[in-house]
Computed example of a mutant assay.
Amino acid sequence: FEFTMRHLVILLLLSSVCFFALSEVVDNNFSKCKEFFLDTTPPDFTPPAGVSVKPICQCIWDNNDKHIFLYATLYNTTWKIPVYSAYVFRKSKSIGRCDAWYIEPQLDLDPELCMRSQGYGSKIGTNQALNSDYENSGYNKGHLYPVLHTDNHLSMLATSTLTNAAPQNPDFNQKAWLGHEKAVTEDLKSCDEAAYVVTGVVPDTKTIPNKKVTVSKYYWRATCCLKNNQYTGKGYYGPDNNGQVQELTIKQLQDTLSGFYQIQKFIIFPRIPKLNQPKKPRIEFTCN
């Protein structure tokens, strides 16, 4: 695995010398939806120079014409894929699935706040992927926040926005990654409270046939929840050399992601909430 990642970085450096130049500061402000991050603190991440990202508070309009925020996404408008999506996992119910596939007008300078169906607006697609980009591409639209981890109808609908998806190998998507999502569901059911999850993708050096949307080379996930008076974190990465999902510590996952982006750090869970338990030893934080 480490051998593969090291050579991937070398290939990217050779293909574009300026691609991994000094990073530029980006406004990583999720002011309207910080509740989807552990201790309301988004991951500490700065993209490579020349790469533009946009924080999105993913929302949908309910039946009373009110917008509801359901999760958060840091979207890469250069590669047309997300960097990550962050959500709160609660014990999932059996939710049906409807792949309506929305777009985000706000990414293309439209004042609309929430996701809309495709066909909305006349200049949509400059800074984001569209359904047509995936047609006959040979790739699935791979969810970061999956339907399997939702617990209500609106959340289920909101996961099917193209800013929450990246081109994913169909075999890996429908087998190893789906199996991983089910295993995470079972694991997080044992949390004492709701769990915090951040799921992202690592871009490949190629695009799907339209030359617009970058293919995802790897998918990753980090989870953190309170179990037995201790915060427990797990990291996941795939596909590995055997086409499976590999389990890592959060620190190993962060080091791997930092190495890929050639940045000093990629901290997924920057802060821990303080717990007031004076009669017990200090609770140790292990989500790192």
Rank of each mutant, 00 (worst) to 15 (best):
D110K: 01
P111R: 00
P111I: 04
E112V: 13
C114W: 03
C114L: 02
M115S: 12
R116Y: 06
R116H: 09
R116I: 00
S117D: 15
S117A: 14
Q118C: 10
Y120P: 00
Y120N: 10
Y120I: 07
Y120H: 12
G121D: 08
S122P: 02
S122W: 01
I124E: 12
I124H: 08
G125Q: 03
T126E: 15
T126F: 13
T126N: 15
T126H: 13
N127L: 05
Q128N: 08
Q128D: 05
Q128A: 04
A129D: 00
A129W: 04
A129Y: 02
L130R: 01
L130T: 06
L130N: 05
S132M: 09
D133C: 06
Y134S: 10
Y134K: 02
Y134M: 06
E135V: 15
E135F: 11
E135L: 14
N136K: 07
S137C: 09
S137V: 07
G138W: 03
G138I: 00
G138A: 08
G138E: 04
Y139F: 14
N140S: 13
N140H: 06
N140P: 15
K141I: 05
K141R: 09
K141A: 08
H143K: 00
H143I: 04
L144Y: 06
Y145G: 11
P146R: 01
V147G: 13
L148A: 15
H149M: 10
H149P: 15
H149Y: 02
H149A: 10
T150G: 02
T150N: 08
T150I: 03
T150Q: 07
T150W: 01
D151N: 13
D151I: 04
D151V: 11
D151W: 05
H153Y: 08
H153F: 06
H153D: 13
H153L: 11
L154Y: 01
L154R: 03
S155A: 12
S155I: 02
M156P: 10
L157I: 04
L157A: 10
A158I: 02
A158W: 00
A158S: 07
T159F: 05
S160M: 13
S160K: 08
S160P: 04
S160T: 11
S160C: 13
T161L: 00
T161V: 04
L162H: 04
L162D: 05
L162E: 08
L162A: 11
L162P: 08
L162T: 07
T163M: 05
T163D: 06
A165G: 01
A166C: 06
A166Y: 01
A166I: 01
P167H: 02
P167L: 01
P167M: 02
Q168G: 10
Q168F: 11
Q168N: 06
N169Q: 07
N169A: 14
P170G: 07
P170L: 07
P170F: 01
D171R: 00
D171E: 14
A176C: 14
W177L: 05
W177R: 00
L178R: 05
G179A: 06
H180S: 12
H180R: 00
K182P: 15
K182A: 15
V184C: 10
V184E: 07
T185N: 15
T185H: 13
T185K: 12
D187P: 14
L188E: 05
